[in-house]
Amino acid sequence: MALSYKARRRWSLVILLVGLPLYIVVAVTLVGLLERPNILVELLIYVGLGVLWALPFRAVFKGIGKPDPEDEGG
């Protein structure tokens, strides 16, 4: 079942306002458990984790920046 535009918009807000900060805390905690790696390795870990969190949510974020396709008022 596909989500409506309004539902995807609401879910994207929840993901960005609640999920992303939680994911950042978890990522920083996990990297903190390692002994301090080289700065380039640490940067690559954060970039990789930054891309990885968004992959499952591609369908939710797709088209959110565009106007509502069902909006007749324009």
Score class of each variant (00 low, 15 high):
D71C: 03
L43Y: 06
L20M: 14
A7S: 04
L49V: 02
L16G: 11
L34E: 00
V14Y: 13
G50T: 06
R58S: 07
G50N: 05
G65K: 06
L17Q: 10
V31N: 00
S4K: 07
I64Y: 10
L22N: 13
L52N: 07
I15S: 03
L52G: 05
I15D: 05
I64C: 08
L49H: 02
N38H: 14
W11A: 14
G63D: 11
L40N: 14
P67Y: 13
V60I: 15
E35T: 13
V51S: 09
A7R: 06
A2C: 02
E70K: 05
D71K: 08
S4Q: 05
L44P: 00
V26G: 08
P67I: 11
I64R: 15
W53A: 06
V51H: 11
V14C: 10
V60A: 07
L30Y: 02
S12E: 05
V51G: 10
E70L: 06
Y46Q: 01
G50K: 06
R8C: 13
L33E: 02
L17E: 13
W53V: 14
I15M: 08
D71P: 04
L49I: 04
T29P: 00
V47P: 05
I39C: 03
G19N: 10
G73E: 09
I15P: 01
A27Q: 12
V31F: 00
G50R: 06
G32V: 01
G74V: 09
A27C: 09
G63A: 05
Y5A: 11
V47E: 00
L17G: 08
S4D: 03
L43M: 06
K62N: 15
V14G: 02
E35M: 02
L52K: 15
V41Q: 01
V26A: 15
L43D: 01
L20G: 12
L34T: 02
D71M: 03
V25T: 11
K66M: 14
L33T: 04
V47C: 05
I45R: 00
K6Y: 01
V25Y: 11
V14S: 10
Y5I: 12
V28K: 01
R36S: 13
R10P: 00
V41E: 01
G63S: 08
I24Y: 10
L40F: 15
P69C: 12
V18R: 11
E72L: 08
L55P: 02
P67W: 12
A54S: 09
W53C: 03
V25I: 14
I45W: 02
L40D: 10
I39T: 09
W11L: 14
V28P: 00
E72W: 06
G19H: 10
G63Y: 03
P56Y: 04
L49S: 01
A54N: 11
A59P: 05
K66Q: 15
L33F: 13
A59K: 15
D68I: 10
V14H: 13
G32E: 04
V26D: 02
E70R: 10
G73Q: 09
W53N: 01
V51P: 02
L20A: 15
I15Y: 13
V26C: 07
A59E: 15
G32T: 03
N38L: 03
Y5P: 08
G32D: 04
